[in-house]
């Protein structure tokens, strides 16, 4: 690998890497496997899907491993650090826009399409001819009562508890960051662990809520537009919390291994930003999916 030589004023360009092409092959196998499975295929589809998944995990270990190694060797200068920061910020922005599409679907359904189906404005004739007797309401599973009767999850039970859990985890990760910046590794590891535990408890309650919804309330992904928006929004959020928790666990191990210094701990900060992002998305979910 590289030897850091002390010529002044030089730029840094990383050496060639096999991981991008490995990642592309993995994505291809994963995606074509998933498509095959959705089309009702089995054997080859399953094989491609899991092989792609395994290679993708392998790629993450390899790629991040290489980057961590180079970082510990001191190859990265402050300019590289800024590039990494910008990369993470704009990645999070792209994630925000991904959620925006699903929030947009929720708002559109509630503000426009459901009142129209109920006969408001130009929807009068539609309502009379196609959906007679349907009255706009929220929650709803539409004029055809798609998915059958269902009940919703009240905001002030588990969702409120989860809100408090995630908000608290935002605080604990900040305490961990403060501990890192003053060099108290014990406190850093304690607060990091606390954040991870809070994340896992959140996920536990979220899973509990899903089981409850499917088994007792009749609320499923197929419960019309309410079930669609509810499960897609909370589901993608839960997926992001899961990824965030895995990232936090990796960072915890790196904290224990002593990878981070008071000045130099971009990976920690990137994961903290990501954690705050899933936190903020949850607040949006709590207000617009559960409360309102």
């Amino acid at each position: 690998m590289g030897q850091a030589t002390a010529s002044s004023n030089a730029y840094y360009v990383p050496h060639a890497s096999v991981w991008p092409i490995v990642g592309s092959v993995a994505l291809f196998l994963l995606m074509s496997g998933a498509a095959t499975l959705l089309n009702g295929g089995s054997g080859m589809g399953l094989l491609k899907f899991w092989l792609g998944f395994a290679i993708l995990i392998f790629m993450f270990f390899g790629w991040f491993g290489a980057v961590i190694k180079e970082s510990l060797q001191g190859l990265y200068n402050s300019q590289v650090d800024v590039s990494f920061r910008m990369g993470m910020v704009w990645f999070i922005f792209s994630e925000v826009m991904f959620f925006a599409a699903f929030f947009g679907a929720l708002y559109y359904a509630r503000i426009f399409s459901i009142p129209w189906l109920g006969g408001e404005g130009d929807g009068f004739a539609t309502n009379q001819l196609l959906h007679q007797g349907y009255e706009a309401a929220w929650p709803t599973n539409g004029p055809d009562n798609v998915g059958g009767f269902f009940e919703t999850i009240p905001a002030w039970g588990i969702p409120l508890l989860n809100t408090l859990l995630l908000l608290t985890s935002g605080l604990t990760i900040t305490l961990a960051h403060w501990a890192l910046k003053v060099g108290q590794r014990g406190a850093l590891i304690f607060w990091m662990s606390a954040t991870i535990v809070l994340g896992i408890i959140f996920l536990y309650w979220q899973a509990y809520e899903y089981v409850h919804a499917y088994q007792d309330l009749g609320l499923t992904l197929g419960s019309g537009i309410y079930g669609s928006t509810f499960f897609m929004l909370t589901g993608f959020h839960g997926l992001h919390v899961t990824l965030g928790t895995i990232m936090l666990i990796v960072i915890l191990f790196r904290c224990m291994a002593g990878h981070f210094t008071k000045e130099n701990h971009f990976a920690f900060e990137a994961v903290a930003w990501y954690w705050h992002f899933v936190d903020v998305v949850w607040l949006g979910l709590f207000v617009f999916v559960y409360v309102l």
């Binding site: 959705l38 959620f99 399409s113 189906l117 599973n141 499923t220 197929g222 537009i225 309410y226 669609s228």
Partner: peptide
């Protein structure tokens, strides 16, 4: 990506984003 994901779930997972019968559009 979000839009085509909704197409995917409408076709394969029973969501109603784009079906008026389920309150979508």
């Amino acid at each position: 990506a979000g839009a085509v994901t909704m197409l995917l779930t409408d076709k394969f997972f029973g969501t109603s984003f784009f079906s008026a019968a389920g309150g979508g559009d």
